[in-house]
Design a protein around this nucleic acid. Structure first.
Length: 357
DNA sequence: AATAGGCACAACCGCGATAGT
DNA sequence: CACTATCGCGGTTGTGCCTAT
């Protein structure tokens, strides 16, 4: 093991700039070194990391000290295995953020980006692949009907590059999503703006979303703070309670799409879908048929949901992706509600409506 | 018991961003 | 404005442990 040897030549050749000026030790840290670093930083703080090694009496470069402190010695680090809940958060946030490990780690108090990254590469990645999901896109990998031996169910799947899975997850653990930027849908869809005067009535689900939206003071504050900004491309979400619809900022286009007039505070009365003009009724059966790959975890948890909604010919892409991926959020939320109703045996007459393309 | 392979995790490297001069 | 130092992040590598053969 070379780790405890002083790597003079290596340090000069490959080390960081700060390391070139001095002899540096590389490799694993000894308990003595840890103790020196802890003692120094506890008393003095790190200040400039480049000066820490000298002041702390370590033959390390500042960068190495910084990493050791951040990833291992910091007192607020949580040790031990990643919990199932944390794993869930990692998957959820990764789906939205991609390999932004530092940002993902911010949602896991006491965990470092390195830890999250390692866990992803060693564990979650394999799990997703085993489930037939592309760990990069979270989309399905294969093109064929694929038999799932575990639950004896057939799944309809697509190449991830052929069809986007409209996937979004809201996790109640995530309390600071306002900084998240949702990946744009991989395939551009036609924009079908709805004129306000021809809007369909708002469905119960949409009214639910919006009601919760405005009941949430933090979201309201966020709305106000971003009122002048375009929300396209960014997905500010809020989710602090277990209610599935208590999330999301629906931008104006989405509100119009949902039949809600954002300029009015009144939520329109719901109507039967059949009464609506130009709106395609989609029953829960059709939806279920279309979304064969609904994540099983949904059924085992209450609202910490993960709803993979597969686009298919039954659900042609229309305003779903209209203008903003945020629309997708609303639809996923609706689907969740629908699924929940199905699970609970609730009989609801409310169906979502979608513009035909 | 020896060895190879897999795995988890710590540590390193390179690069871009930012701050200071 | 240009240059340099430093920081922070993501990708990659290396090490040691565990397990199967």
């Amino acid at each position: 093991m070379v780790s405890c040897d002083i790597q003079e030549g290596l340090g000069n050749k490959m080390g960081h700039q700060c390391c070139r000026k001095q002899k540096v030790k590389r490799g694993l840290w000894s308990p003595e070194e840890d103790e020196k670093l802890i003692k120094y930083i506890t008393i003095h703080g790190h200040g400039s990391w480049s000066s820490v090694p000298n002041l702390a009496g370590l033959e390390r470069c500042g960068k190495s000290c910084r990493l050791r402190w951040i990833n291992y010695l910091r007192p607020d680090l949580k040790r031990g295995s990643i919990t199932a809940k944390e794993e869930r958060i990692i998957v959820d946030t990764h789906r939205i953020l991609g390999n932004k490990w530092a940002q993902i780690a911010k949602h896991l108090p006491g965990r470092t980006d390195n830890e999250v990254k390692n866990f992803w590469n060693s564990c979650i990645k394999k799990k997703l692949i085993a489930q037939g999901l592309d760990p990069n896109t979270h989309n399905l990998l294969s093109t064929n009907y694929k038999h799932n031996n575990n639950n004896d169910a057939w799944k309809l799947s697509y190449h991830s590059h052929q069809q986007p899975t409209s996937t979004f997850t809201v996790n109640s653990q995530i309390s600071d999503i306002s900084s998240m930027v949702m990946k744009a849908p991989p395939i551009p869809f036609p924009m079908i703006p709805l004129a306000p005067d021809t809007n369909p009535p708002l469905s119960h689900e949409f009214s639910s979303i919006l009601t919760y939206e405005y009941q949430n003071p933090r979201t309201q504050a966020f709305l106000e703070s971003t009122a002048s900004q375009s929300s396209i491309g960014s997905v500010p979400i809020f989710s602090s309670t277990s209610h599935p619809s208590e999330f999301g900022m629906l931008d104006e286009s989405c509100m119009w799409a949902g039949g809600y007039d954002p300029t009015q505070s009144i939520i329109p009365e719901k109507k039967q879908p059949e009464q609506q003009v130009g709106i395609e009724k989609i029953t829960s059966h059709e939806l279920t048929s279309a979304g064969q790959n609904m994540d099983a975890s949904f059924e085992t948890s209450n609202f910490d949901f993960d709803f993979d909604f597969v686009e298919s010919t039954l659900l042609p892409c229309g305003m779903y992706y209209n203008q903003s991926p945020i629309d997708q959020l609303a639809w996923d939320s609706w689907a969740l509600q629908e699924k929940k109703n199905d699970c609970c045996g609730n009989d609801t007459n409310i169906s979502p409506h979608r513009n035909k393309v």
